[in-house]
Design a protein around this nucleic acid. Structure first.
Length: 829
RNA sequence: GCGAGAGUGGCGGAAUUGGCAGACGCGCCAGACUUAGGAUCUGGUCCCGGUCUCCGGGAUGGGGGUUCAAGUCCCCCCUCUCGCACCA
């Protein structure tokens, strides 16, 4: 064999075993050192890693290894989001207990993670389906319950017929279940909720205190929380004592209200029409609308439909009588479930008014124009001058918003209000494989929390899968219990928690995961938290990230935490694609991580994933790109092997011989190359987390290194050793196995993993000569090489004397010369 | 419709504050070594033109502007991706 290919299989196994045996990934307990908490979103244990997983882990691991080398105390844990439906479905299908199935999946995934050489501190592993973890879910739930943050209410909720359980609003994507994409149905059930809305204001405001979160993620959260500032106005109902409160963001249009609209399911509607000729048609209409699923009903192009109720409201400002309608486009769950309609200045109201021949009244005129209700073809929604608005006429409409609101407050007819789209988080799930909600229902005392001392409420093992309803209901010995208050007969809650509950605080548990007496020690949590770098996919932009932020705030108010936000910096990594499409079974374009590791090794896989694209962008898989990275590692291998004797001599000399360039120009070049590359790679890693350019710089260094001929003298040996040593250190966060192997081959007996990141010497970057680009009128005309210490005047003179430059200046007068130090000279003629 | 992001060679992507556009890798072309190469090494590779080791012109989705200088800043337009989408 003429050229050897490096034996990655042996090397990778060898060092994985070594790292593990030496316990090198365990978290150092040196509190005096600065800490760095790098975390990748823990996976659901499906049993098999996909490229998306591999990508997140490679990013996180490169950061962890780099920060260790920079002298930080690094916490880099991993665990499994182990509760969830797939395990339960597997139980139904294959007759395996979900616990067994999950355990097997975890083992397989862990095996793959270790084969990638990921530097996790497995001693801190968190597996959410274990009682030692979920008991703290229950404990937290009880704390929330004490504070009124967990409560039970009957509400219209989203039901996924396929998963046979309810879903939170966030888990319904375009009217479909986030997990199985079945259309979601509406049901009315009594369920457990967490009061996330209590934190709506803080959740939206604090986004501004997260400058290192990607803007698009923050925008998505802002949209989801949906804050809008407006005014609550109380209309009266004619022939009734009832008040009719409505929310509007446009109090300036109050004089233009020509009808009111109720959501069909609004409880007041039936009272209003009771006994009248309108009762039956309105009832039928409401029934028709309510059964339409929410997504269908709220699609924007949905035809607006409604019906008059026969009743009137009274506008508090001018006493006008206003007809009340019900219509499909008004939503019960937003605002008060009833709106004031101003067709002249709201497009929806305009369409509805035209369709049902309701009068249109203009109260705002655009600058330099006169709108007339008869000729308008769409609503005018911009600001303008107030008209037909009593004492407010003539005002600027934007100023009138405040003026009218103030007037309403004065008269006791309304007040400024803020509305949110965010709803409370529905956490009950009618499924087995989750954390039991620690509550009991007593025939005498009603709902009672399970006392803390009785936690955990264990999931019953002995249940029947595959019947109808929640399997947990087949465990009689679980359901039947004694009331913690009176000791009488009671029934346990059979709903389990949404698994997003588990993942909302797991990163806190890593700080002290083996604590059996408490959820965590405050010292540990406050040393490590917040997470310095959180890496994960955008798919959790709202769900997991919003819930986690809510948990931290709620736990802070309970007194468990002293900080406000869980994740300081968020790195939302891009999708992995192949042939321009997301990797998926249905496209048949899936690349299996195992196949790549088998064929090229983990180092190549890691290197390619980080090299092919910046972390936050899409990554297009390319088999040839992988080959390219494999070639690079082979070149590193061969270079070291072919020069091993000289490098080893350099190693021996490392303490007696200073590494400095001789007068030999090749030595100077190499010396500068070393320090120049350190500078580039360090700034790519440190400031920008641009691994692709960091790797490119290392590749360039090797290219420069391969043209260096080692001489049989001390200086040259010392220098080549230094170059190789530096290169290995700099590729070690990306390709740790080959770096570790060659590190030992060149002479070291201690692991590269514990080495410090190389430092560059600014003076080593000094050059004797520099290349100045000379432009004439902004176009490059020449390049001149001058002494590095040549004064500006002389550089200018040299440039002006340059033949090529002269040609372009000819005899034209020189207007200006701009000099950018060490780079460029622009002569303007 | 609203919001966010993006648009650079045949491809993935570089260009940190406005300062040589196309680093690095892939692919392609040529050569070397070879029984052979889909191994390895060396050189070349944005487009157009010319008197072709050199010289000139053009080029970062399109158009305009600021500037000595624009991929980068400002204005208008086009395309794509993602998110929200009757939220009163």
């Amino acid at each position: 064999m003429a050229e050897e290919r490096y034996p990655f299989k042996d090397i990778e196994q060898k060092w994985q075993r070594y790292w593990q045996e030496q316990n090198l990934f365990s978290t150092p307990e040196q509190r005096e050192k600065p800490k760095y908490y790098v975390l990748e979103q823990f996976p659901y244990p499906s049993g098999k890693l996909h490229m998306g997983h591999v990508r997140v882990y490679c990013i996180g691991d490169a950061i962890a290894r780099y920060m260790r080398m920079r002298g930080y105390n690094v916490l880099h844990p991993m665990g499994f989001d182990a509760f969830g439906l797939p395990a339960e479905n597997a139980a139904i299908k294959h007759g395996v207990h979900p616990g067994e199935w999950t355990k097997r999946c975890i083992e397989q995934m862990k095996h793959q993670q270790n084969a990638l050489g990921l530097s996790y501190d497995w001693e801190r592993e968190v597996i959410t389906c274990e009682p030692k973890y979920y008991r703290w879910n229950q404990w937290l739930f009880l704390k929330f319950y004490e504070r009124g943050l967990a409560y039970r209410k009957k509400a219209p909720i989203n039901w996924c017929p396929s998963c046979q359980t309810v879903l939170a609003n966030e888990q319904v994507i375009s009217g479909k279940c986030w997990r199985c994409e079945s259309p979601v149905e509406l049901k009315s059930l009594e369920q457990w909720f967490l009061k996330i809305t209590a934190y709506a204001e803080e959740l939206i405001n604090e986004l501004d205190s997260l400058p290192e979160w990607p803007e698009h993620i923050k925008t998505m959260q802002r949209n989801w929380i949906g804050r809008s500032q407006g005014t609550l106005v109380n209309f009266r109902i004619k022939d009734s004592d009832e008040l009719l409160p409505i929310f509007t963001t446009r109090p300036d249009t109050l004089y233009g209200v020509t009808f009111m609209v109720f959501a069909p399911e609004h409880p007041m509607v039936m009272e209003l029409v009771k006994g009248s000729e309108y009762e039956t048609p309105v009832k039928e209409f409401a029934a028709k609308v309510v059964i339409q699923d929410k997504f269908y009903r709220t699609a924007e192009d949905r035809e607006k439909e409604g019906m008059f109720t026969g009743r009137y409201a009274i506008n508090p400002l001018n006493g006008e009588e206003i007809p009340i309608y019900v219509a499909n486009f008004v939503l019960m769950e937003y605002g008060t479930g009833c709106i004031m309609a101003v067709p002249a200045h709201d497009q929806r109201d305009f369409e509805f008014a035209r369709k049902y021949n309701i009068p249109i009244k203009v109260v705002i005129q655009p600058p330099g124009e006169q709108l007339s209700p008869d000729t308008m073809t769409e609503a005018y929604v911009e600001p303008g001058v107030m008209v037909n608005s009593a004492q407010f006429s003539g005002m600027d409409s934007e100023l009138a918003q405040k003026a009218i609101t103030d007037y309403l407050v004065e008269q006791g007819w309304g007040k400024p209000t803020v509305q949110y789209k965010l709803r409370d988080w529905l956490i009950s799930r009618q499924r087995y494989w989750g954390t039991p909600i620690p509550m009991v229902y007593c025939e005498e005392c009603g709902i009672q929390p399970v006392p803390e001392t009785e936690l955990p409420v264990l999931l019953p093992e002995n249940v029947r899968f595959g019947g109808t309803g929640n399997p947990i209901e087949t465990a009689q010995e679980f359901i039947n219990t004694a009331c913690p208050n009176c000791g009488g007969r009671a029934r346990r809650e059979t709903d389990t928690m949404d698994t997003f509950f588990d993942s909302s605080w797991y990163y806190l548990r890593y700080c002290d995961s083996r604590n059996e007496d408490a959820i965590f020690s405050p010292d540990d949590v406050h040393y490590w938290m917040p997470v310095d770098r959180y890496v994960g996919g955008v798919e959790h932009a709202i769900l997991h990230l919003l819930y986690s932020r809510f948990f931290v705030k709620a736990m802070r108010d309970i007194g468990l935490l002293k900080f406000d936000e869980p994740f300081t910096r968020l790195l939302a990594q891009g999708m992995v694609t192949k042939d321009g499409k997301k990797m998926s079974k249905s496209f048949g374009n899936v690349v299996e991580p195992n196949d790549i590791i088998d064929k090229y090794g983990a180092d190549t896989a890691r290197l390619f994933i980080l090299f092919a694209s910046p972390a936050e962008k899409e990554l297009e898989w390319s088999d040839q790109g992988v080959e390219g990275c494999y070639r690079f590692l082979n070149r590193v291998w061969r270079f070291v092997r072919n020069n091993l004797p000289a490098i080893q001599k350099g190693f021996e000399l490392r303490e007696v011989e200073e590494c400095a360039p001789t007068s030999h120009p090749e030595d100077k070049r190499l010396f500068r190359l070393i320090h120049h590359t350190i500078k580039r790679v360090t700034s790519d890693m440190e400031e920008r987390f641009h691994f692709n350019t960091a790797i490119a710089a290392s590749m360039e260094m090797l290219n420069g290194l391969s043209t260096y001929t080692v001489r049989d003298d001390k200086h040259s040996q010392r220098l080549i050793f230094e170059a190789v040593r530096t290169l290995l250190l700099m590729i070690s966060p990306f390709a740790p196995h080959i770096a570790e192997e060659l590190w030992h081959q060149i002479g070291y007996s201690t692991p590269i993993l514990l080495e410090s990141w190389p430092e560059y010497d600014e003076s080593a970057l000094q050059v004797e000569e520099m290349l100045i680009v000379v432009q004439v009128n902004g176009k490059v005309r020449s390049r001149i090489t001058v002494d590095a210490d040549l004064p500006e005047d002389e550089i200018k003179q040299t440039a002006l004397n340059d033949e090529k430059v002269k040609k372009f200046i000819q005899n034209k007068p020189i207007r200006k010369i701009i000099y950018v130090p060490k780079k460029l000279l622009n002569i303007v003629v």
